[in-house]
Nucleic acid binder design. Structure first.
Lengths: 227, 227
DNA sequence: CAGTCGTACGATACTCAGTACCAAGACGAC
DNA sequence: GTCGTCTTGGTACTGAGTATCGTACGACTG
């Protein structure tokens, strides 16, 4: 859906004014005036003053949700990692807007809070998805929470790096790198949680050939932990 | 610091009214009136209307920060896991208040958002702490973000369970259980990240003896991943 | 062309959170 | 007694967000 011209003019006016005078120093009347419309019209297009900065989160959330539902991945964590790519892709798509918003949000605490809340919505979506997927398995809720928060954290980390660098590279390899961390991690966790079907499992640790034997023993003990 | 009587009366009045009429339907004037003070006085004790629900987050944050600085743990993740206990302990300490707040926050979106923002502050604190600790090691920022978010997620998960159960048990064993997940996980991650000093390392995968050979190959490939 | 219906806009008025400022009382120190 | 400080109340203001009404414009129909 192509945004209406009025909506676009309002967004442009808002960004301009926020950069000129700052966010708190800009009133909705100012924005409306510069866009050449009335205050009423502003609130018809945006529910609140900060909505003009975070417009399409709802649509993006819906897209992510759809992707999750349509996923054919064989693991919850893989499905979520796949879905989070959509989010990053969306930021990269109009890098201009993302960068302007990033610089603005960095200066205005109220907007930072608002962004945190938005991100939490994605995390919640992931958590519920993984929770359904794992339903019944031990510690399902906990693992769902951990997976969701990890994926979101990885995404945020990569996104922030990309934004700080001014969007000067394609951030998808870094994202995949980070997500590999997580996938390996949770595959590892699944192994930890899978002493079933008779326990006919061989546990092996890997060490540098030069390692101190005592260190090896300590590490093995730690690895086995409270299993 | 024992809270002043006026502050206490205001908090009580607010809770009462929020439960009677709902949060949005209660004005600051109402609260002040029921507490028998003026509106001005309310804003002297609480910066905003929702501050009356989330009072001592700043103090708690400071306590957590102090604990981190004083930590003698040998691993960043252990230090953070230790620090997060303070937070849970604080909730458990006055379970009454925690439970009332929990029930209220569950019904009021604005308060939920506010709580999310508060939690993010802890996460940020953890992230910076771990980031400093790991400074220089590969993927330090990413790992710091992951550790911080995981610890916070585990804490939230345990806390929510405890609150949902009406605070009917001591939540510290569940917390330790969850934190064990994380500590094992990140110890694992450190191992993955240590193919240095010559790379004279043997990589070994572990599988049930009954596993399908193709599945084994796939898993090994995935495990090696982008290493 | 005339009538009409729906939509988008402007204008006004209102509620309420949050800020700034000032005046009055309480209370101890001296 | 008086001075200074600390707390409170009162008053006025800004600005976000809501509700409502009237109206102009265009489209569609007869």
């Amino acid at each position: 859906m192509p945004r209406s011209p009025t909506s676009q003019r309002l967004a442009d006016a808002a960004i301009q004014l926020f950069n000129e005078r700052g966010y708190d120093e800009t009133t909705v009347d100012d924005i409306a005036a510069r866009a050449g419309v009335s205050r009423s019209t502003f609130f018809r297009y945006y529910r609140s003053k900060d909505d003009v900065i975070f417009p399409d989160h709802d649509a993006l959330l819906a897209k992510v949700d759809a992707r999750l539902r349509a996923s054919t991945a064989d693991t919850a964590i893989v499905a979520v990692c796949d879905a989070v790519r959509i989010v990053l892709a969306h930021y990269v798509e109009d890098a201009e807007v993302s960068l302007r918003r990033y610089r603005l949000v960095g200066r205005v605490p109220a907007l930072r809070d608002r962004e945190i809340v938005s991100v939490a919505r994605y995390q919640r979506l992931f958590r519920e998805y993984v929770g359904d997927w794992l339903a019944g398995s031990p510690d399902a809720a906990l693992r769902a929470e951990l997976m969701a928060s990890s994926v979101v954290a990885a995404h945020n980390q990569v996104l922030r790096g990309w934004l700080r660098a001014g969007g000067s590279y394609a951030p998808f390899e870094p994202l995949d790198h980070a997500l590999q961390y997580i996938i390996r991690t949770f595959r590892h966790l699944e192994n930890l949680e899978r002493p079933r079907n008779g326990g006919d499992q061989v546990v092996v640790a890997t060490f540098p050939r030069s390692a101190d034997p005592d260190a090896v023993l300590d590490a093995i003990r730690a690895h086995l932990g409270s299993r």
